[in-house]
Amino acid sequence: MTDISARTRANQQSPTARIALRWGLYAILFIFALYYLMPLFVMLTTSLKSLEEIRTGSLVALPRSVTFEAWATAWSGACTGIKCEGLQPYFWNSVLLAVPAVLISTLIGAMNGYVIAQWRFKGANLIFSLMLFGCFIPFQVVLLPMARTLGFLNIAGTIPGLIFVHVIYGIGFTTLFFRNYYVTIPSDLVKAAKIDGAGFFRIFWSIFLPLSLPIVVVTVIWQFTQIWNDFLFGVSFSQAGTQPITVALNNIVNSTTGVKEYNVDMAAAIIAALPTLFVYVVAGKYFIRGLTAGSVKG
């Protein structure tokens, strides 16, 4: 007894050193918080300044006079190439694209996960492995044939075409999410329900679906973030008028005509980021769960 307490005492520093260490720790963590927040702060303040103030003032200074002009321009007047209608139409493109793509891929993932986890048949594991593998391919390797296929199906350059692409390449992840969740549900449940005469869909509908809320939230958030933030598919498979918001943002920022309006660029970037930021702030817990599940398990 005395032996242990003597050793623990040897491990303890003087109270002053402990307090200093504690303060140092908080200082470092706080500095890093500033580092992560800095770009957002700069974006926000720049978007609220006039061009004149941007040219004369400092990057990190607060705006002397707040103006929302840049936001109005970014939303409805900024030029993406020839057209100057701001981000607005592209924002709605992204909504029209993301909502159906998220819903369809989540539904397919739920059914697939249910089959793979609870209705195992010979070869099911192989199919799952093949799907899992699909999550890891660099999409560059499917860009060319997909461009031709979309043309063949007559949906090249359309929003349904992009929905199709996102659903196809989202299936791997959504299946993975649901499969890993349903695997934890005891298989006796299905057996008992079968004895009671319930069929495949009935069991899914009245037993599995009611249990699925957490994983549905994780999957929807993951898919929404992926699809909203996608750029590669958007830039490859859209045309003027059907581009998603990330492509339009890039076009605004990199358009070479006229005066460079940094405040408009920043307002546009924040507008493009708002939906996913909102989801993150509101449902951060599920966002992180999806990120870690999607990476660690996959």
């Binding site: 918080a33 700069v42 990330t246 943002l249 890039n250 546009a268 980021a273 996913t276 989801v279």
Partner: peptide, 16 residues
């Protein structure tokens, strides 16, 4: 605060 950049599109990050 540390994790929010992961919610942003890389296009937004690049622009900033």
């Amino acid at each position: 605060i540390y994790l929010y950049p992961m919610a942003l599109s890389l296009i937004v990050t690049g622009t900033a």
